[in-house]
């Protein structure tokens, strides 16, 4: 009687793995744009870290001296220049994110799929309203400590 052994024999085959260079994405514009999209999150993360610095300053106590230092840091030119580049990066993220959203999540209404353009218009509407509310609140001086 043969016994079925559970242990597999070590494979003798030597698969050919085509070498991939780390700069593969520079050869085609489509790939380059993909990498730009992927790296745009680094700027969002950088901005999150700037905000984190502000939160840490605010948490040091009821004294606002550290918070004022943080505001002066945010008002400095190097930070502003980085943030302007970051704004373009994040807007590119927004554009690509809204483009892929109808593909990632199909919206069904009464058993019928909504067209992708409807989802996109709704998302741009949400972006517009959120921005408008934030600008209105920040510019009128309603938000203050």
């Amino acid at each position: 009687m043969f016994e079925v052994t559970k242990k597999e024999a070590p494979s003798k085959r030597k698969p050919f793995n085509r070498p991939v260079e780390a700069n593969w994405w520079t050869r085609k514009k489509f790939y380059t744009m993909y990498m730009i999209r992927e790296s745009s999150v680094l700027f969002a993360m950088l901005f999150a870290l700037e905000l984190l610095a502000g939160m840490i300053c605010a948490a040091t106590g009821n004294d606002t001296s550290c918070l004022i230092k943080w505001i002066n840091f945010m008002a400095s030119w190097p930070v502003k220049i980085v943030n302007v580049i970051g704004l373009f990066a994040v807007l590119y993220h927004t554009y690509t994110w809204f483009n892929l959203m109808p593909k990632a999540q199909r919206l069904m209404v009464k058993g019928e799929p909504m067209p992708g353009s409807f989802v996109k218009v709704a998302l741009y509407g949400a972006l517009f309203i959120t921005s408008l509310v934030a600008i209105a609140l920040a510019a009128t001086g309603l938000l203050s400590i």
């Binding site: 945010m74 943030n83 994040v90 809204f98 998302l123």
Partner: peptide
């Protein structure tokens, strides 16, 4: 990031 962060960065300027 898509909806809220752009306006935050713009305001921070």
């Amino acid at each position: 990031v898509a909806i809220f962060v752009p306006v935050l960065i713009a305001l921070s300027f």
